[in-house]
């Protein structure tokens, strides 16, 4: 009886993980601009992989004693995913990728830079050098 319940939990974790990861990749493929695509992998795929790891943790724990190694990978994934998402968003802003036209808000980082000095403004004459 107990075995069946545990097996059910493992099976649920594996399938849920697979479904979440698939949905994340689907979002990566068919959303319109980079900033929207970032949402799928950074949240959904992380939870999908986390679910799979916890499923395998339960699977190996029921045979011989508790095993916590997979929990380390899960925690590591959950700590690092936001960091890499942040860095990717930063580099996308740096490259000034165009957001979808429906996006509201206009951050300074995306505006095109104006040249700071034109030739007319450059100091003329009165050179300090003799």
């Amino acid at each position: 009886m107990l075995n069946t319940v545990i097996e059910g939990v493992i099976a649920f974790m594996l399938v849920a993980g697979g479904a979440f990861a698939f949905i994340g990749s689907l979002g990566l493929t068919h959303l319109k601009d980079f900033y929207m695509r970032l949402h799928g992998p950074s949240k959904t795929t992380t939870l999908g992989v986390g679910c799979t790891l916890i499923g395998s943790l339960i699977y190996f724990s029921q045979e011989d004693g508790p095993i916590v190694q997979e929990l380390l990978i899960t925690i590591f994934a959950f700590i690092t995913a936001p960091v890499s998402a942040h860095m990717l968003a930063k580099s996308a802003l740096h490259h000034k990728l165009k957001p979808d036209p429906r996006t509201r808000g206009n951050p300074v980082e995306l505006e095109s830079e104006k040249p700071k000095h034109t030739i007319e403004e450059a100091p003329q004459g009165d050179s300090p050098l003799p």
Binding site: Y35, L38, A85, A89
Partner: peptide
């Protein structure tokens, strides 16, 4: 903010 509903911190 990145891990919770609908938002990603960008910069």
């Amino acid at each position: 903010i990145t891990m919770t509903p609908g938002t990603v911190s960008a910069h």
